[in-house]
Design a protein around this nucleic acid. Sequence first.
DNA 1: CTGAAAGCGCTAACAA
DNA 2: TTGTTAGCGCTTTCAG
Lengths: 337, 337
Amino acid sequence: MAKATIDDVAALAGVSIKTVSRVVNSEPNVRQATQEKVQLAINELRYRPSPSARSLAANRSFLVALLYDNPNANYITDVQQGILQECRKRNYDLLIHPCNYRDEGLQDELEALVGKSRVDGVILTPPLSDMSGVIETLSALKMPYVRIAPAENHEVSACVYCDDGKASYDMAEHLIGLGHRRIGFIAGHPDHAVSLQRKKGFEQALVAHKIKQPKKLMHQGYFDCDSGREAALKMLNDSAPPTAIFASNDDMAAGVIQVARELNIEVPKQLSVVGFDDSPICSLTWPELTTVRQPIEELAQKATLLLLDELGNRASTHKEQSLHCSLVLRNSTAPAP
Amino acid sequence: MAKATIDDVAALAGVSIKTVSRVVNSEPNVRQATQEKVQLAINELRYRPSPSARSLAANRSFLVALLYDNPNANYITDVQQGILQECRKRNYDLLIHPCNYRDEGLQDELEALVGKSRVDGVILTPPLSDMSGVIETLSALKMPYVRIAPAENHEVSACVYCDDGKASYDMAEHLIGLGHRRIGFIAGHPDHAVSLQRKKGFEQALVAHKIKQPKKLMHQGYFDCDSGREAALKMLNDSAPPTAIFASNDDMAAGVIQVARELNIEVPKQLSVVGFDDSPICSLTWPELTTVRQPIEELAQKATLLLLDELGNRASTHKEQSLHCSLVLRNSTAPAP
DNA sequence: CTGAAAGCGCTAACAA
DNA sequence: TTGTTAGCGCTTTCAG
């Protein structure tokens, strides 16, 4: 038998198609008895509304797009997971659209995706969350969107973020509390806004504790293991090496640990090492890595909730929310020697 | 201005909407001059066909779904990447649908997703690729699908896979070639069909080289670090410990390396360790892990190609393809002591 | 090579 | 509380 349509259901239930539509969309103003009658017919025919027809008529697709430039597999799967949690509740589906944030054609790509209005809304992750071009295109096309972890301009759209600077400050203070005074810092990729936040938080903690930070202890990294290694190599081979190193993410911290081992520097006895992100490698390194955990999945969930609310109400309640990071203390930190 | 429709384009170009449709879908039988005239109008109006209308009329959505039970973030992002590579070429979009393969309601979930025919085709990854319930549901609903890395029944549908057994055999032979005779093996999760293949390949290599494998050297693992640790602990604390350990994936191998360090067993001098998957942690462990690389992205790409071909032609050319794994030799292996 | 007409299956506005 | 009537914007016949 061919797929049942709304007409079949209406015929079987002995009502008009509009009534079926009402039941399907759980609209009010349907008598209980009618409701049940229709539901019965729906079940019997295994009727499923056609998304295309619905989209065409109602001008909404029940599809949201996740736009991202894959920074890291774990990050992105966490984000996807969080988004889908909310989507399932409201019968939305998720379409994923990785892209290259430095791509010249990104603007056009976005316009193509959004312009045909295949999706009802868009979710952005860093560094896209902070790209004015992207944001302006979306606004111009009146496409609802929400930003995950934007660094700035929290007011221009609905968004959800963590205070990375605060977490960074706390982590620095933790090290200082352990007696460390010479703390090396490896910054994150300069294109990611969080990099600056993490660096600032670190520096503020030093200032608060009246610690002067020599330039030699500040290094540029790129969020990958190699840049962590490079920075560590420079610092640890210096005549006045640090007693602790704060890497702006876990991959770089893993690089630091590697270098330490190669130089026969014991972690954490001679050198404390901390990272950021709480990625799976934290428990795979030796010693296990002290780090900062961001609630990525929750972040994505809240963001999605904000977006779907906006899509439902069409009340553009530009909200912003923030969540807290937490320190995860493992074995890569110890009192200063 | 409101969004341009096919009528607007037709009016501006001075042709019928059918002709516009022909141009948009690059159908034959349009005179060059007409073609250009229409294209001009399209550009001027920035016309984008409406996916919903198109779906409704043509009964195809240009959407494919990836159905998976997230085994691992890297695996899944690689798969997504591969799929999207092909999708972009043919203007398909990807909808992701993670699920729990042990969920009672999986059947219904699938039927809901597929029954409304929101998607034109489905891509399956392990362990879903081998679940008869899933496959039968898809077949019953006549939903085209392709399976990535199914373990068995390669003929029932289009599919793409690697010969894990062969790779496993080769890796075992590599260890044997280094002089190892007591090689511990940690099997993968029993629900994943590849686990058995990898185990079989390993055993076949031993048989081929006339090595008797004591039961004590065969352990059940679950693809996670902890189960690797557990197995390693048992084997390395034994009176006759192995000189090499073959873990069925990298996470377990990382666990083995940890345990070795805790027991002051030097890797690779006293113990060689190998994994499987070539995941990012391979270069983050110390020493870096020798492993097997599966061309996951290519696998996904080929699978998608197969699926989209089928969707295009509607010729159900049940093809199957296989790709090769390769050994990645790093520093965790050395001649037997 | 091109076009006219008839839907695809649903929702929205309005009527009853 | 329910039904009627128009489309939504496209593709598909089938005729020219």
